[in-house]
Amino acid sequence: MKKSDLDKVKIKQIPAQKRTNPFANVFDEFVGFCRSRSMFMLHYCTGCGAIELPPAMTSRFDMERLGIQPMVSPRQADILLITGYVSIKTLKRVILTYEQMAAPKYVIGICSCTVNGGMYWQSYATAKKLDEYFPVDLYIAGCMPRPEAVIEGLQQLMQKIKANEANSWKQYYKNYDYFLGNQQHLFGNNWQTPTDVIGEAETYQLAGPNTLGEHTKILQSVQTPLKPLEMKL
């Protein structure tokens, strides 16, 4: 897979559509409001930007007044906060974590490093554009962004959720082939995750024309059933 081939694929953002039934509308708005006011942020820090999170979480800036709390397990978390540069090794773990999170899930890329590799652009070990590997709702640039900026970003995310616009997680199912292609580009064609994303997309009825493609074909041809990990002491 060449880089130039991947560049051709463009992802279309689908605007939020309101349902026709006014009662359903009210219900959607209510759900959006509730969602935006109670979010759990996964406690997973990748780079140096994580240093700004303790002040953002604790009494000085106090994220909790917005209803955002840290959560230790990906399965109960809503927000995946990528706090800085992601090395290729970390990226694998981040993708595993992202796929384990239950929808709806939101990804925020904090720090310039998540936008373009930041000052690690020339590094052989860091992944550059985060949204090549999974959809990102919001970037907060800065090296590193101050806690005020983090809070501001989280508030923006809340606004987006309230307006039912934070639907990037659906893109992962709809354009799985593109994301998988980029992942295979870095990790090789044997790359597979324990989550059956295609199956999930079909179950949630989110599979689109771009869910399957040449990359998913490669995945299906190399996929082996998962075995329990060997315990070694």
Partner: peptide, 23 residues
């Protein structure tokens, strides 16, 4: 995760590799 040449060798051009791999 690395399959390329040993990256700290002076003859490994990290920047070139990045240009070819990432956009």
């Amino acid at each position: 995760e690395w399959n390329g040449p040993p990256p700290m060798r002076k003859d490994f051009d990290s920047e070139k590799w990045v240009m070819e791999t990432f956009s």
